[in-house]
Computed example of a mutant assay.
Amino acid sequence: METTARHVECWLPDLQRFDPAHPLCALLREGDRVTNGAQGYLGGLSAYFHYDGELPAAALIREHLAGDAADACWLNADPAWIQPDMSGARLLACGHLPLGMEEAQALVEPLQAVFAEQGMALHVSTPQRWQLRVPADMFMPHFDAPEQALGEDLYDHLPQGPDGRRWRVLLNEVQVLLHQHPLNAQRRERGLPPVNSLWFWGGGVLPSHIDTALRGVIGEDLLLLALAHRAGIPAQRRTVSTADAAQAGWLLDLQDQSADAIAGEWWPCLQALSKRVPMLLSFASGERCLHRPWHRWRFWRGRA
């Protein structure tokens, strides 16, 4: 297996999203399968970046966006949409709701007093990314990340037991206030999903250092960019031109893109890269394939 420095790594969605006719499958037929890698969004980030303990996503994002994480304890409290059903309530969206900064600030205003009573402060870093500054001596249980809970019953992913009760009660108060907020009534009238809950996750303190074998990253994901910043490697926003210029040792993040978007917007770039530099195609479902420029001459490999 080659080291990261010898290829561009392309992080892609689950392999099963690509049908056999997808142009990307031509590279899979030409390349060599290698040992499976990490699965999922958080699993992938943990494979690319190394740190002690659980990923302190909130502190990393806050430092990247505002530069004031310092040595405080932070917890993501991202705006979320939950939908009640016959058996409970399901998390349908988190961190990807259509929401402007003025709307976010308006929604947060009545919540501040609730958090202040607990010694916490709620900060809006972006309309989609909110963080709680938590007292250092406050017990913080494990919270599941959004990707672990999307589409599932909300209560299966809340902290349980006496230690989690404080947070369940707090979340219930927040949900009542958001349900009553006039802005959510306006959003429903406009055909937009309400922001009727928060999702707590990614708690912790900013790590003193983060290690990585990557030389740089190209992507749009805030946590990926924050990790790169903390690890001291360059990070570029994802455009066709930055992807075209990717060099060995860099990670190109496309795992949030649809198969159709990859076949359309990104395929010319990927095809050109495959002729110029070795590429490791890493799928979020774990499969990996190493493609070298000369592999395109493997014309004897027919369609699967």
Rank of each mutant, 00 (worst) to 15 (best):
106 A>E: 14
133 R>W: 01
165 R>A: 12
154 L>V: 15
133 R>L: 10
140 M>S: 05
116 A>R: 14
148 Q>Y: 03
130 W>D: 03
144 D>A: 08
123 H>Y: 07
172 N>R: 08
136 A>M: 08
131 Q>F: 02
148 Q>S: 03
163 D>R: 12
151 G>H: 14
177 L>Y: 03
109 E>L: 15
174 V>G: 02
158 L>A: 01
163 D>L: 15
112 Q>F: 07
119 G>P: 04
175 Q>L: 09
143 F>Y: 06
118 Q>S: 07
148 Q>F: 02
172 N>D: 12
143 F>T: 05
133 R>S: 08
159 P>F: 01
175 Q>M: 15
151 G>T: 13
101 M>S: 08
177 L>V: 04
168 R>Y: 10
146 P>G: 10
122 L>T: 08
109 E>Q: 15
114 V>N: 03
146 P>Y: 10
138 M>E: 13
114 V>A: 05
147 E>G: 13
169 V>N: 15
155 Y>D: 15
111 L>Q: 01
123 H>I: 04
176 V>P: 02
112 Q>R: 14
128 Q>D: 13
123 H>E: 09
167 W>G: 06
176 V>E: 11
112 Q>N: 13
102 E>I: 03
109 E>T: 15
153 D>E: 14
176 V>C: 13
170 L>W: 07
114 V>R: 01
173 E>G: 08
156 D>S: 12
114 V>G: 01
116 A>H: 14
157 H>W: 15
176 V>H: 13
157 H>T: 10
109 E>R: 13
111 L>S: 06
137 D>H: 12
136 A>V: 11
110 P>F: 05
122 L>D: 06
138 M>Q: 14
139 F>E: 14
166 R>K: 07
162 P>F: 12
115 F>L: 06
131 Q>E: 11
144 D>P: 00
140 M>W: 01
133 R>A: 10
108 V>C: 08
160 Q>G: 07
128 Q>N: 11
169 V>M: 13
119 G>S: 09
118 Q>G: 02
121 A>G: 05
118 Q>C: 04
117 E>V: 00
143 F>C: 06
169 V>D: 15
118 Q>K: 06
102 E>A: 10
112 Q>P: 03
118 Q>W: 04
137 D>R: 05
107 L>Y: 00
111 L>H: 04
153 D>W: 08
104 A>N: 05
166 R>P: 04
125 S>P: 00
105 Q>K: 11
154 L>P: 01
100 G>D: 11
159 P>N: 06
141 P>R: 00
129 R>Y: 05
174 V>M: 02
119 G>C: 06
154 L>E: 09
108 V>L: 11
108 V>G: 06
103 E>Q: 14
100 G>V: 11
98 P>L: 07
137 D>V: 04
130 W>T: 01
114 V>F: 03
166 R>T: 01
106 A>G: 15
158 L>V: 02
122 L>W: 01
174 V>C: 01
126 T>D: 08
132 L>K: 05
117 E>N: 02
140 M>E: 03
157 H>S: 11
143 F>M: 04
161 G>M: 13
144 D>E: 09
167 W>R: 00
120 M>W: 05
162 P>N: 12
109 E>C: 15
131 Q>L: 07
117 E>S: 09
134 V>T: 12
113 A>M: 01
121 A>H: 06
124 V>G: 03
113 A>K: 00
143 F>V: 05
137 D>T: 08
103 E>V: 09
172 N>I: 06
122 L>Q: 07
143 F>P: 00
159 P>Q: 07
127 P>G: 10
99 L>A: 05
119 G>Y: 11
